[in-house]
């Protein structure tokens, strides 16, 4: 459903990701790994349309979206959860969710089922909740738009282990749904490899590994050479 062909993109004249090609089937899961600053977030931003595309094309279900503004891509079914979460502080939790609502499978009730914490905090101001809850809110907000593809940019970053557990459960629910394609960018290597059957690894803006997650999981040497220091993050978890 999502296809990138030779995508080169960055900010202004600066090129950050180069010649990236990949295809994701409907309901497909993909983990994106790599050290800090190799272009993982830029890849996500390029798919939603917040970077400058220097070359290549992006299609969603056969429709070329390369030149479309973010809101059109969102309406075509791309949900994006940025690393910065960007919850709206002047709105309540529930308003943050309802603001993104579009008709479809995802309703307020369903988001509250996946993230019960949010139901308890529904009248709190968007930033008057914990970091983990803000992350849940950012994901819930993306789901309210009824996406076919969900882009998650380091959702576990900086969260307490207990919250990470809750999020993993939520992701399992989403994964079991089967119709939602998910791209997960993560620093927790093991978590990402467990989540998706397929993984790509970026290095300096290029794809240096594209294959089965289990192959990468089984090969510690390959992991160390591709991911270096960030491999140690996996042990912590």
């Amino acid at each position: 459903m999502l296809r990138l062909e030779g995508v080169t993109a960055g900010f202004g004249h600066t090129v950050i990701i180069e010649n990236i090609s990949l295809a994701l089937p409907p309901g497909g899961l993909l983990a994106v790994l790599g050290r800090n600053g190799v272009g993982k977030s830029t890849l996500m931003k390029t798919v939603i349309g917040q970077t400058r595309l220097h070359g290549g094309r992006i299609t969603l279900e056969g429709v070329e979206v390369s030149q479309l503004p973010s809101h059109r891509r969102s309406r075509l079914g791309i949900g994006y959860v940025p690393q910065t979460r960007d919850v709206f502080p002047s709105l309540t939790v529930e308003e943050n969710l309802r603001i993104a609502a579009r008709p479809g499978k995802w309703t307020l009730e369903r988001v509250y089922e996946v993230f019960p914490n949010l139901a308890e905090r529904r009248t709190n101001a968007g930033t008057d909740i914990s970091g983990g809850e803000q992350q849940m809110l950012a994901i819930g907000r993306a789901l309210m738009g009824d996406p076919k593809l969900l882009l998650l940019d380091e959702p576990m970053e900086g969260l307490a282990p207990v919250i990470v557990e809750q999020l993993i459960e939520a992701f399992d629910l989403l994964r079991k749904d089967g119709s939602l394609a998910i791209v997960l960018v993560e620093q927790y290597v093991q978590l990402a490899l467990d989540f998706a059957p397929r993984t790509i690894v970026l290095d300096r803006g290029r794809v240096v590994f594209d294959g089965k997650s289990e192959d990468l999981a089984a090969d510690a040497e390959l992991q160390a050479s591709l991911l270096g220091a960030s491999g140690s993050v996996a042990k912590r978890h």
Partner: peptide, 20 residues
């Protein structure tokens, strides 16, 4: 709400499908 969202972060509003 969407107006307030745009005021606070227009990029984010765009990414959740709001035509700014």
């Amino acid at each position: 709400w969407s107006l307030r969202g745009i005021r606070e972060n227009d990029r984010r509003m765009g990414a959740i499908g709001c035509p700014i």
